[in-house]
Simulated scan of single mutants.
Amino acid sequence: GFTNYNVGRGEHMGFQTQKPLGLLEQIIRASSNPGDVVFDPFCGCATTLHAAHNLSRQWIGIDIAIHAVKRVARMRLRDQLGLVEGKDFEIEGVPRNIEGARDLWERDKYHFQKWAVEEAEGFVTTRRTADGGIDGRLYFAVPDDPMLQSMVIEVKGGNPTIADVRSLRGVLEREDALMAGLIIMDELGDRKDRNFRKEMASAGHVELWGNEYPAMQILTVSDLLDGKRFQTPTVMGKHTPEPRMPGLPR
């Protein structure tokens, strides 16, 4: 028979249907032998892969969500199991260059947006319908305030216009956020870049912890792939599945 398992302390990764590690280990132990290959075509937060690794099985996992694959690689395989990408495991299907990002945009715009937000170390908007110009947020602490403040993020994979910048400024004011970030696919031409940055500069700066940060900022996908990030105070929760401060969406 099977033991009654619950997701243990420290296991939870923010997936509503996450299964207990002990349960998956019991199933794998009963249905395979060491050295066998365990295949999970809907791996989600990779509990099956974790259990297979613990029991000396080889494993393959697939998931449709790019952000889930990235989270699994960071939190489950690297942080919990101590595995090294390129040595102990390989990831396929996650953009590594601008061509891969364009391919993802063409195939699935929603998952491209989620990938871009998480690449910027933000939290994605959970709704798949109209999002009011917000694809994600970065959260950070501010002086003398127990609540986290945020930067709203919008992702534009097509051809952005100055109207998009003005619209994002409206979102910034409507949401009462401190900053707004725009992620675009490609570099802008010189004239367009000047117009964008002039419009963004008109939103002013935010002073926090003795530093000034532009209230509106822009990054390209190439910037993200090169490791550049939005200028903010230290981002909260970027190595956890969801913010843990009161008043934040879950």
Rank of each mutant, 00 (worst) to 15 (best):
Y139L: 15
Y139I: 04
Y139R: 08
Y139S: 05
F140E: 04
F140V: 03
V142K: 08
V142Q: 06
V142R: 10
D144N: 15
D144S: 13
D145K: 13
M147G: 03
M147F: 15
Q149D: 13
Q149S: 14
M151L: 14
V152N: 03
E154D: 09
K156P: 02
G158Y: 01
N159C: 03
P160T: 03
P160M: 04
T161K: 15
I162C: 06
I162T: 10
D164A: 11
S167R: 15
S167N: 13
L168A: 07
R169C: 02
R169H: 11
G170C: 08
G170L: 10
V171H: 02
L172K: 08
E173C: 06
E173V: 15
R174H: 11
D176Q: 15
D176W: 13
A177V: 10
A180T: 02
G181W: 09
G181L: 07
L182Q: 01
D186I: 01
D186R: 01
D186P: 00
E187V: 05
E187R: 12
L188H: 02
L188C: 01
G189S: 12
R191Q: 09
K192Q: 13
D193I: 00
D193V: 00
D193K: 15
D193M: 12
F196L: 03
F196E: 00
R197C: 01
R197Y: 06
E199C: 08
E199Q: 12
M200E: 02
M200H: 03
A201Q: 12
A201N: 09
A201Y: 07
A203S: 14
A203I: 04
H205W: 07
V206K: 15
E207C: 04
E207H: 10
E207S: 13
L208D: 04
Y213G: 00
P214F: 09
A215Y: 04
A215N: 02
A215M: 07
A215C: 06
M216G: 00
T220G: 07
T220N: 05
L225K: 05
D226Q: 14
D226K: 14
D226L: 12
R229C: 01
R229Y: 05
F230D: 00
F230C: 03
T232F: 14
T232K: 04
M236C: 09
G237Y: 12
G237V: 07
K238V: 05
T240Y: 12
P241K: 10
E242N: 08
E242T: 11
P243G: 06
P243R: 10
R244V: 10
R244Q: 14
P246A: 10
P246D: 09
G247F: 13
G247H: 11
P249N: 07
P249H: 07
